[in-house]
Simulated assay, not measured.
Amino acid sequence: MLSKIFDSTTLGFMAAAIILFIIVWIKDASLAVSASKDGLTLFVRYAVLIISSMLIAAYIQVLIPKDLITSYLGGASGFKGIFLGSLIGGLTPGSPYAALPFFAGIMRMGASVPTTVAMVCAWGLWSIGRIPLEAAVMGAKFTMIQVISSFILPILAGLVAWFLETIPWFMT
């Protein structure tokens, strides 16, 4: 049980946090205390967000009929599922803490890997929740060029995933 929680990545981050705390403490103890409070506040905020997101994903799994997911997004849905997955991903708002549990829940309900790949890719490239911020920061022209030029990429990613699933030796 503890080996699943305290893997090498977790231990590495813990060690880095302790080392950085010591460095900041040596520089100025009050800065170390202030930074620790900020870090713990951020931890609580994201812990609540992650728990809420996972609960929402679980509730969605209960509310959406599994056969609906399987028929429209499952393995037999083919290109139609990849296309729909791209649209769903692009229309999914939120941070990774909110979106990824949602996508994982849909995949557990029967969405195929290629469809889920398309969802995640579309969400990362042109999530509807991110576009207004991107336009405000990067400019409307850049945002339009980015969205239009990357529009086909989630579909291509889903098709590549579909192909990779057909290779018997891949990821076995």
Results as ranks from 00 to 15, higher is better:
G90Y: 01
D38Q: 12
R45H: 14
F13L: 07
P154N: 07
P168L: 04
K141R: 15
I82C: 00
G110C: 10
I5G: 00
K27W: 07
A104D: 11
V33I: 12
K27T: 05
G124A: 07
A57Y: 04
K4F: 13
A140D: 10
I19P: 08
G39V: 05
S86G: 12
Q61C: 09
T166G: 15
T143P: 08
D7I: 11
I26W: 03
M1A: 15
F21M: 10
K4N: 14
A118I: 05
V160A: 08
F103A: 06
I64G: 04
V62D: 12
V160R: 00
S36L: 10
W123I: 03
Y72L: 09
M119R: 02
E165K: 10
F102C: 02
F151W: 14
R108Y: 10
A157E: 06
A98I: 14
S71Y: 02
R45V: 08
A111M: 01
S112T: 01
S127D: 09
L42K: 09
P96L: 02
T166Y: 08
F83R: 01
I155V: 13
F43E: 08
V147C: 01
I22M: 12
A157T: 03
I60D: 00
G129Q: 01
W162H: 07
A17L: 09
P101Y: 10
G110N: 09
A15R: 07
F103K: 00
K37F: 10
S52G: 15
V48L: 15
Q61V: 14
I26T: 13
T41L: 10
L11D: 13
G90P: 02
G94E: 04
Y46S: 10
K141E: 15
I64Y: 06
A111V: 11
P114L: 12
T92N: 01
A98G: 08
G12P: 15
A47G: 14
L2I: 14
A161S: 11
P154G: 06
V117I: 11
F21K: 04
K27E: 03
Y46H: 12
A47M: 13
L11N: 06
I51Y: 01
S77K: 03
L87A: 11
K141D: 13
M138A: 08
I19C: 15
W126L: 11
K27L: 06
S53A: 11
I152S: 07
G81R: 00
S53F: 00
M109F: 02
A104H: 07
F151T: 06
G139A: 11
M107E: 15
F163Y: 12
L55I: 08
M138T: 11
V44Q: 08
G78S: 07
K27Q: 05
I19L: 12
V113G: 14
S150E: 13
D67V: 05
T92L: 03
M119Y: 02
P93W: 15
F6K: 03
